[in-house]
C-alpha cells in the first residue's frame, strides 16, 4: 500500500471511475486541464488518460479509468479498471455517479466498496436533479454508503473545488469505515470458509482485500481463480473449490 502521511508533499494518486456517459470525461478535463496526457494501460489497447491538479498546495495525479457498469473479468476495460485499483492501489477512487439514475450507477459504487477502495463519490448532473425536483438527502446517503459525497455540475464546474478538497481529505484520512453488505447466511458462511483458507497465505491478504477475494471466488471470477490456482496448493484449492461448488 502506498504510504499516506498527514503532511502535504506526498504524491497522491486519484483514479476516476464511473458508468459511461455520466460526465466523467468532463470532470477529468476540468480537474486536469492542459496537464492531460494520453497513453495506454500496460499491455492492452485500452486508452489511459492522466493529468494532475494542485489544490491547497497538494499535487494530485489523476488517472481516468474506462467507463464501465461493473468490474467483472469478462470485459477487457472492466478488467483493466479493476486491475488498476487492486494492483496500483490509488490513494483515492473517485466514483462519478449520475444523480438522475442513481439506481443504475450505485451498482458500481457497491463493487468499489467491496474492493476496499478509498471512495469519494461525485454526484454529477446535480443541475438536472434539481430541475427534475428530485430530492436527495446527501448526508444520509453519504452515511449509508460510508463515503463522502460531493454534488457536482460538470458542465459548469460547480462543486469541483469541493471535490478536490474531498479527494485530498480522504487521501490523508486513514479511516476506512466501509459499509459492508450482508449477502445472506449461505453466502456469508461460504465467505467465512473461504477466508479460512485464504488466511493461510497472509501475504496474499496484504495485497488484496480478503473479503473481495472470497466474493470473487464465490462468483467464480476467472481472473481470481487463476491467481488462486497459482498461489495455493492443490489441497487448499480443493477446499476452495468444494465451497464454491465446482465438480
Amino acid at each position: 500500500m502506498s504510504t499516506k502521511t498527514k503532511d502535504t508533499g506526498e504524491q497522491i494518486t486519484a483514479a476516476l471511475i464511473g458508468n459511461p456517459n455520466v460526465g466523467k470525461t468532463e470532470i477529468f478535463n476540468r480537474l486536469t486541464g492542459l496537464s492531460q496526457r494520453v497513453g495506454n494501460f500496460p499491455g492492452v489497447t485500452v486508452e489511459k488518460k492522466g493529468g494532475r491538479f494542485i489544490h491547497q498546495g497538494q499535487v494530485v495525479d489523476v488517472v481516468d479509468l474506462p467507463g464501465t457498469y461493473s468490474l467483472t473479468a469478462k470485459a477487457l476495460d472492466e478488467l483493466v479498471a479493476r486491475d488498476f485499483i487492486v494492483e496500483e492501489k490509488p490513494n483515492v477512487v473517485v466514483d462519478i455517479v449520475d444523480g438522475t439514475s442513481l439506481e443504475r450507477n450505485l451498482y458500481l459504487t457497491f463493487l468499489l466498496m467491496e474492493l476496499d477502495a478509498n471512495l469519494v463519490i461525485a454526484l454529477n448532473r446535480w443541475d438536472l436533479v434539481k430541475a427534475r425536483k428530485i430530492n436527495v438527502d446527501l448526508d444520509r446517503l453519504s452515511e449509508l454508503l460510508g463515503a463522502p459525497i460531493v454534488a457536482t455540475v460538470a458542465t459548469t464546474g460547480e462543486g469541483l473545488e469541493d471535490l478536490k478538497s474531498s479527494i485530498i481529505k480522504v487521501a490523508h484520512d486513514q479511516k476506512k469505515s466501509k459499509a459492508i453488505l450482508d449477502y445472506g447466511n449461505d453466502v456469508e458462511a461460504g465467505i467465512k470458509s473461504i477466508s479460512a483458507v485464504l488466511n493461510e497465505k497472509p501475504d496474499l491478504l496484504k495485497r488484496y482485500p480478503p473479503r473481495w477475494l472470497a466474493i470473487k471466488l464465490i462468483e467464480r471470477d476467472e481472473r481470481v481463480l487463476e491467481k488462486a490456482n497459482s498461489m495455493f496448493s492443490g489441497l487448499q484449492m480443493a477446499k476452495i473449490l468444494e465451497v464454491i461448488g465446482y465438480e
Partner: peptide, 23 residues
C-alpha cells in the same frame, strides 16, 4: 450465484435510495 449476489446488491441499493431519494 453471481446473479444472486447482484440481486442482493440491487436490493440494498433500492433500500438506500428509498430512504434518501424522494421524487
Amino acid at each position: 450465484l453471481s446473479v444472486v449476489l447482484a440481486q442482493k446488491r440491487y436490493e440494498r441499493i433500492s433500500e438506500i435510495i428509498g430512504s434518501t431519494v424522494k421524487k
